Simulated scan of single mutants.
Amino acid sequence: MDKISTFLWFDDNAEEAGKFYTGLFPDSRIDETTDSPMNYPGGNEGDVITVGFTLSGRSFIAMNGGPDHPFTDAISLSIDCADQAEVDRYWDALSDGGEPIMCGWVKDRFGLHWQVTPRILPQLLADPDRAKAKRVMEAMGQMVKIDVAAIKAAADGKT
C-alpha cells in the first residue's frame, strides 16, 4: 500500500466498483476485502465494508459507508490518454450507465467523476503561443468527449 491512498466512500457497491475499475485499467488488481465485524449504518455484519485495490500502480480504498456522502465533482480522477483510441475506450466504459458532462468529464455509474484527457490537451493549453492555447480552450469548451483531431485543428487555426 502507498503511504497515501485515495479513499472513496460508496453507498453499498464498493466491491462492484473496485472490480469494474480494476478490470478497466492495466496494472490493476483487488488487493484485499474486509468484512464488517458488526452491523453499521451502511450494512450488516459480514458484509464487505472495505475493498483495497490498485489502479495502474496506485492504491485506493473503497468503503461501503451508506448514502450519506455521495461523490461530487469537487474531486475527480484524471486519466492521461495517449491518443483518441484510448480516450474513446475509457470514455465508453465510464459513461456506460453514467453521465457524460463536458470538457472531457464524465460521471460513472457509481457517481465518481473522471476527466478523460488526451495527453496533447494540457500540452496545447500550456503552449507559449497564448492565441493558440485560447483556440484550443475554446474548442474544448464546446466538447463533451474530447476530440483530439478537433483540438489539433483548433491549435493550427483550422476551425
Results as ranks from 00 to 15, higher is better:
residue 121 L to C: 09
residue 24 L to G: 04
residue 60 F to P: 00
residue 133 A to G: 05
residue 43 G to D: 00
residue 107 K to I: 06
residue 74 A to G: 15
residue 46 G to L: 04
residue 27 D to R: 15
residue 121 L to V: 10
residue 151 I to A: 08
residue 66 G to F: 05
residue 7 F to G: 04
residue 72 T to A: 06
residue 105 W to I: 02
residue 138 E to Y: 00
residue 26 P to N: 07
residue 36 S to W: 07
residue 4 I to Q: 05
residue 20 F to T: 06
residue 148 V to G: 03
residue 55 L to M: 12
residue 22 T to E: 05
residue 37 P to G: 14
residue 110 F to H: 12
residue 19 K to H: 12
residue 96 D to N: 13
residue 68 D to V: 05
residue 33 T to D: 01
residue 94 L to R: 03
residue 141 G to Y: 10
residue 40 Y to L: 03
residue 2 D to Y: 01
residue 150 A to H: 09
residue 42 G to Q: 10
residue 47 D to A: 07
residue 42 G to M: 10
residue 6 T to Y: 14
residue 99 E to K: 13
residue 89 R to E: 02
residue 53 F to A: 11
residue 134 K to M: 11
residue 71 F to S: 06
residue 144 V to T: 15
residue 146 I to A: 01
residue 157 G to E: 07
residue 15 E to A: 13
residue 73 D to K: 01
residue 87 V to F: 06
residue 66 G to D: 09
residue 134 K to Q: 13
residue 82 A to T: 11
residue 103 C to A: 12
residue 159 T to R: 07
residue 11 D to H: 14
residue 2 D to N: 14
residue 150 A to C: 10
residue 73 D to R: 00
residue 44 N to C: 03
residue 55 L to F: 04
residue 16 E to C: 02
residue 47 D to T: 09
residue 8 L to M: 14
residue 8 L to Y: 10
residue 2 D to R: 11
residue 107 K to A: 12
residue 97 G to W: 00
residue 102 M to R: 14
residue 35 D to A: 15
residue 60 F to A: 00
residue 119 R to N: 14
residue 78 S to F: 10
residue 103 C to Q: 09
residue 1 M to H: 14
residue 92 D to M: 06
residue 141 G to K: 09
residue 89 R to M: 12
residue 68 D to L: 06
residue 74 A to Y: 01
residue 121 L to A: 14
residue 75 I to A: 11
residue 131 A to Q: 15
residue 90 Y to F: 15
residue 94 L to G: 04
residue 86 E to P: 07
residue 9 W to P: 01
residue 87 V to D: 02
residue 136 V to K: 13
residue 64 N to K: 08
residue 70 P to K: 00
residue 83 D to S: 11
residue 88 D to V: 06
residue 136 V to M: 06
residue 76 S to Y: 11
residue 21 Y to S: 05
residue 11 D to Q: 10
residue 9 W to C: 10
residue 94 L to P: 11
residue 39 N to P: 06
residue 124 L to W: 07
residue 41 P to V: 09
residue 136 V to P: 04
residue 68 D to K: 11
residue 9 W to Q: 11
residue 110 F to C: 03
residue 33 T to L: 09
residue 139 A to T: 07
residue 65 G to D: 09
residue 12 D to V: 01
residue 124 L to A: 09
residue 115 Q to L: 15
residue 48 V to Q: 02
residue 33 T to V: 13
residue 28 S to Y: 04
residue 125 L to S: 12
residue 102 M to C: 09
residue 70 P to G: 06
residue 155 A to P: 00
residue 106 V to Y: 01
residue 155 A to V: 02
residue 87 V to Y: 09
residue 118 P to V: 07
residue 159 T to V: 14
residue 48 V to L: 07
residue 50 T to P: 08
residue 25 F to M: 04
residue 99 E to D: 11
residue 25 F to T: 04
residue 147 D to S: 11
residue 51 V to K: 07
residue 139 A to D: 02
residue 95 S to Q: 13
residue 145 K to E: 02
residue 44 N to S: 15
residue 7 F to R: 01
residue 153 A to Q: 06
residue 16 E to W: 02
residue 85 A to I: 08
residue 94 L to F: 10
residue 40 Y to M: 03
residue 60 F to D: 00
residue 130 R to K: 15
residue 146 I to C: 05
residue 12 D to R: 15
residue 13 N to D: 15
residue 73 D to Y: 01
residue 152 K to G: 00
residue 65 G to C: 05
residue 147 D to K: 04
residue 94 L to M: 05
residue 107 K to H: 02
residue 82 A to F: 00
residue 76 S to F: 11
residue 21 Y to E: 07
residue 106 V to S: 04
